[in-house]
Each structure stands twice: as structure tokens, then as C-alpha cells.
Design a protein around this nucleic acid. Structure first.
Lengths: 193, 193
DNA sequence: GTCTATAAGAAGATAGAC
DNA sequence: GTCTATCTTCTTATAGAC
């Protein structure tokens, strides 16, 4: 692996676990296996390294959602359910990328807050748009209730996932996935026609 | 206000906004209006100040949930709905206490992680127990479905709230509350008998 | 309890040799 | 690109006068 890739990999893990201020350049250098000043041959400063990761994670996130929703022609219930479980599964895994994304979406380092919220806000809008389309489609096919708006169903879908994933603090990933299957029942009962 | 109370108030706000590592003792002292070393007359060090706040917030949180659930004799649907909106409302307000609690529940400063997760984990168990009882009661009265477990309903209830509250990053509190009312419909359709 | 002064170390970042 | 050495600034924390 090239040094720059290694820097990205290691700093991603450290930022995700320790936060922006909790991660030092010395710490990153040590995990990469180089000395601290060598980092500055690859990145102008700590901020630019961090923002580079933010860009990568935004791109990956959109790709991930698109792929999760693309289940082939299985019908909307299965499609939504499979994607639901895929999110919860992947986000509760010890995946530095997902942890990084959620952490800094919710708690951006204050000096970089504006740039971060702009970038990630755009990403979220894109992703929510995709799902809302799906819901609207399900309504037109008579599978989903017309008593609720498509946006509401999409919004609630994401809110529920985010809430479930948050539970990692208390429960093992397997337990959360089990719980997600049950929470899905509540949700599906709530949106079906 | 006594100095110690002022220290708590100001540091709570700073920790909630900037995180543990992002908040310096100098920063706190400045907001309190005293010099940095004076802080050490009230707290042994930064950790003990922080952990004192954690204790306070845990106590407040349990009290808050208990009060929210205590709506008088209005029937379980109204009781759950009112509490639901109260959480979302209070949690999306610019309330340092709530922000502090959620932030460090999810992302504890690594050196204090064990103490924090123990304390807050205990608190969460207590709170979830309260709600599960309510759900079981609703099932016995035939208001809530027996197709789902009481734990599932309680768990999903909290997950949905946490997910909704997370949206503060993107939307104004009023918009989230509006959305919460709609998400409630999904949820209630999902759990009613 | 609050202050000034200061220690001791860690932070981000640069200079310049190889 | 990577290193050693160094700078500057900021960090937590203490000593000791008032």
C-alpha cells in the first residue's frame, strides 16, 4: 500500500474512534509507521487530511445506499427490508468508514462545521431522494398506504435506522440486528396499504 | 449563582458543543469569568468536572423521562404520543443538557469510556424498563397488538426518537417536530392492535 | 477562593539535510 | 519522501501570595 493510502486508512480509524481533536498527527504517524513530519509531505495540514476523508466517505456512502437499494426485481417490501437490514448490519459492524461518517455528520469539529455540513447535507439529500422515489412508486402500485406521504415514509425509514444503529453503545451488533428485524415489523405494519 | 454552579453550567455548554477534547479549561474559565487556576479550587481536574456533569445528566434524564410519561389518566395512545413529542421537542431544542447526554452516550472520550458507559448504560436500562411496562399494560388492555413483543415496541420507540432527533443536523427543530408527528403515525399504525 | 507566575508536556507545523 | 531538530502555541496542572 502506498503511504498516502496508509495514512488515510489509519487516520480514518483514529478519527472515527477518538474524534478530530482526540486524534493527533503524532498518533497517526505512529500507526502509519512513519515520523510525524513525513505526514506533511502528503497533506498540507490536519484539516486537509480530515476533509479528504470526508469527501471519500460521502462518495462511498452514496454508492453504498445505491447498491443496497438495488436488489433486482424482488418487490418493494423485500427490497426495503433487505436494504434496511444491510444498513443496520454494515453500520453496526466495526467499520471505521461508517463510524467516521455518522460521527462527524452529527458532531462536526466546530471550526470545520460549515464545510462538513454542506458536503454531507448534499449527500443526505441525494440519498433521501432515492428512497422517496421508491416509496412513491410503492404507493402508486397500491402496496404502500396513501394515508402517509412518501417523504414521511422515507424520513421515518432513515430515522429508525439511525436510531437502531445508535444502540451499538449498549448492545452487541447481533442483538441489534435481531431487534432491527422486529422493529421492521412495526415499521412495515405502519406503511403498508 | 455560586461559582461552582456557574462552572457546571458553562462547562456543560462547552462540552456539549465542542466535545471533551475540544473544550479547554482556559475556555471554561473564560466563560465563567474567572482565571483558569481558580477552577482547580472546585474540581481536582478536568476529568472530575466532566464526570460530575455526567452524574447530573443521568439523574436529570431519568427524571425527565418519568415526568414525560406521567400524563395523568389520558389513555396509552395519548400518553405515548405526548411523551414522544416532548422528547423530540426538548431534544431538538438548544438544550445543552440533552446534547451533552446524547453526545457522550454515543461518543465517550476514550479514556473515560468505561465509567461513562457503565453509568449511562444503567440509566438507559432503567428508562427502557419503564416504557416496556407501559407497553405490556397496553397489550393487556387490548390496545396494542400482541403480534409484537412489549420490548420490541419500547425499543423501536426509543430508536425512532433517537433517529428523529439526529436530524437536527439538517433540519430546523420545528420541521423535525412536524416530521415527528408524521413518523408517529407510522409508528402507531405499527403497534396498535 | 481567587489571583499571578510558572512548570512540564503535547499539540500542529516548518527548516533543512539526506 | 523521509528524517532529525526545532519553533510556537496551547494544554493540564501546581506553587504560593493575598
Amino acid at each position: 500500500m502506498h503511504t498516502k493510502e496508509k495514512i488515510k486508512k489509519e487516520s480514518l480509524e483514529l478519527f472515527a474512534l477518538l474524534g478530530y481533536e482526540g486524534t493527533s498527527m503524532a498518533n497517526i504517524a505512529e500507526n502509519v509507521g512513519i515520523k510525524k513530519p513525513s505526514l506533511y509531505a502528503h497533506y498540507k495540514n490536519k484539516e486537509s487530511l480530515f476533509l479528504d476523508l470526508v469527501m471519500d466517505m460521502s462518495t462511498d456512502y452514496v454508492k453504498f445506499i445505491e447498491e443496497s437499494l438495488d436488489q433486482g426485481n424482488v418487490g418493494i417490501e423485500k427490497q426495503l427490508y433487505k436494504a434496511f437490514l444491510t444498513y443496520v448490519h454494515d453500520w453496526t459492524q466495526d467499520d471505521a468508514g461508517n463510524q467516521f461518517y455518522s460521527r462527524f455528520l452529527q458532531y462536526p469539529p466546530q471550526p470545520l462545521a460549515k464545510q462538513l455540513t454542506d458536503t454531507l447535507g448534499e449527500t443526505e439529500r441525494k440519498v433521501r431522494g432515492l428512497l422517496t422515489e421508491l416509496m412513491r412508486d410503492g404507493q402508486q402500485k397500491g402496496i404502500l398506504t396513501n394515508e402517509l406521504g412518501a417523504e414521511t415514509m422515507a424520513y421515518t425509514y432513515f430515522a429508525l435506522i439511525e436510531g437502531l444503529v445508535t444502540e451499538v453503545v449498549f448492545y452487541a451488533p447481533e442483538d441489534i440486528i435481531e431487534q432491527a428485524k422486529k422493529s421492521w415489523k412495526v415499521y412495515w405494519r405502519g406503511i403498508k396499504a
